[in-house]
Amino acid sequence: MDLATFLIQCLNAIQYGLLLFLVASGLTLIFGIMGVINLAHGSFYMMGAYFAYGLAPFVAAWFGESFVLTLVLGLALAVLIGYALEWAFFSFLYRREHLQQVLMTYGLILVFEELRSILAGNDVHGVNAPAWLAGSIPLSDLMTYPVYRLFISAVCVATGLVLYVVIRQTRLGMMIRAGASNREMVQSLGINIRLLYRIVFAAGVGLAALAGMIAAPVSTVYPNMGSQVLIICFVVVVIGGIGSIRGALVASLLVGIVDTFGKVLFPEGAGVVVYLLMAVILLWRPEGLFRSG
C-alpha cells in the first residue's frame, strides 16, 4: 500500500466512523441515560432514510426542490414520532427488566418493517444527492472522492459538537446528566424528569433519523437496512462505554479504522475484526473506554 492509497483509506475510515457516530450517539443517549435497550434504534435510522426518499417529492411540489428543507422536515417528524413513542411505549419500560425492553423494542422492529412494507413497498430506492453537493474531487489518477461524503462528515462533526456543548455546557445538559446518575434526587429538586426523558428520547430518535436521511443518497434505501446498522451501533456503544458521547465518538472512529483496514488487509477475516476489537477492549476495560456518570 503506497502512501496515497493509505491516506485515502484513512479518509474512508474517518468518514465511515463519523457516520457510525451519528447513529450510535442517539443509541448511547437512550441506552446510557434512560437505561433502555432500544433494539428499534435501527428502525429509526431506516425511517429517516425513507423520509429522505418519501418527503423529497412533497417538498419539491410545495416549496421547490430543497434538500435542506427535506432534512428539517424529516427531522421534525422524527422528533415528533420519538416524542409520541416515548409517551405511548417507552415511558413504561424504565423500571422493567432488560428482557422486557428487548421484547418490546424487538416487537417495534417488526411493526416498523411491516409499516414500511405497506407504505413504501419492498423495492430498493435511490435518493439523489442535491446538485450543489453532487460533484467530486480527484484524489489520484483513477479515483475521485464524492463531495457528498465530505458533507456527511461535516454534518456528523457539527452534530457531535452541538451534542457536546448541550450536554456539557447547558442547564438542560446538566439536568440530563443529573437524571442519569440519580433520577429520584433530580425529581425531588423539582425538575420534571418525565418531560426530560421524553425530550432525550425524542432527540435520540431524531439523531438516528438524521443519520438515515443524510446517509440515504450514498447508502440507498431498502428493506431491513436498519438491522445492519443496529448491530454495529451496539458494538460502538459497548466499546465506547454506555452513555458516553465522547466514548461513542472514539469508538466509532476506531471501528471505522479497523473495519476499513480489516477489509483490505485481512479480507478473509473482515467479518470478525470489529468483534475482535470489541472483545479485546472489553477484556482490557470491561466497562468500555469511557464510562459515563
Binding site: D2, T5, N12, Y16, R149, T260, V264, P267, G271
Partner: peptide, 23 residues
C-alpha cells in the same frame, strides 16, 4: 485479486480504493 465484503455489509469505499490502487 479476489476481493470480498462480509455479507450483507454495504460499505464498499475501502475496496473501491483498493481497486483503484490495483489498476
Amino acid at each position: 485479486k479476489d476481493l470480498t465484503v462480509p455479507f450483507p455489509n454495504v460499505e464498499f469505499q475501502a475496496l473501491l480504493t483498493e481497486i483503484a490502487s490495483l489498476k
